[in-house]
Computed example of a mutant assay.
Amino acid sequence: MAARSDATGASSSPLHWVGVSSRITLINLGYENRLEAADVSPEGNDLVTRLGTPQYLEIGPANHFTFLAVCKPQAAGMLAEEGEDPICTDPDGADRKDIHDRLVVAVANALGL
């Protein structure tokens, strides 16, 4: 899919989805402070509405990076010291293993497994 150049943060247009006949499941991680381009909710790029009636799930507490592997205990501090993206810093109450387990169930359900 080609990225859109407007300020909506949307990464696709309705033309990308013409002819798609399978069920679509969209998942947002977290409930606030989402990355604009990755937020498919009506408050974000609104892909969930533009696609019509996809299944839509919010899993949290989490952020965009929570889908990545569980970090080693000292990783968040090391990344902060190096000025890197906060890929190991999750919101209060987040448990990456639990989020991963919930993502697996959501994807399996979406695929009918």
Rank of each mutant, 00 (worst) to 15 (best):
A2F: 06
A3K: 12
S5N: 15
D6I: 11
A7M: 13
G9V: 04
S11R: 12
S13H: 11
L15I: 11
L15E: 14
G19R: 02
V20A: 09
V20T: 10
S21C: 05
S22C: 13
R23P: 14
I24G: 15
L26D: 05
I27K: 12
N28C: 08
N28G: 10
N33K: 13
R34M: 10
L35S: 14
E36A: 11
A37L: 07
S41H: 01
E43I: 09
D46I: 05
D46L: 03
V48D: 09
T49G: 12
R50Q: 13
R50I: 05
R50S: 02
Q55A: 13
Y56L: 00
I59D: 02
I59Y: 08
I59N: 02
G60N: 02
P61V: 04
H64C: 00
F65W: 11
F65M: 06
K72F: 06
P73H: 02
A75E: 14
A76Y: 01
A76S: 12
M78R: 07
L79F: 02
A80I: 00
E81Q: 15
E81I: 00
E81V: 07
E81T: 15
E81Y: 02
E82T: 10
E82W: 06
G83V: 05
E84M: 08
E84G: 05
D85G: 13
D85T: 03
D85N: 08
P86M: 03
P86F: 00
P86D: 02
I87D: 05
C88K: 01
C88T: 02
P91Y: 01
P91T: 05
G93H: 08
D98T: 14
D98R: 03
I99T: 09
I99M: 05
D101C: 06
L103T: 12
V105S: 08
A106C: 11
A108H: 10
N109K: 10
N109H: 12
A110L: 12
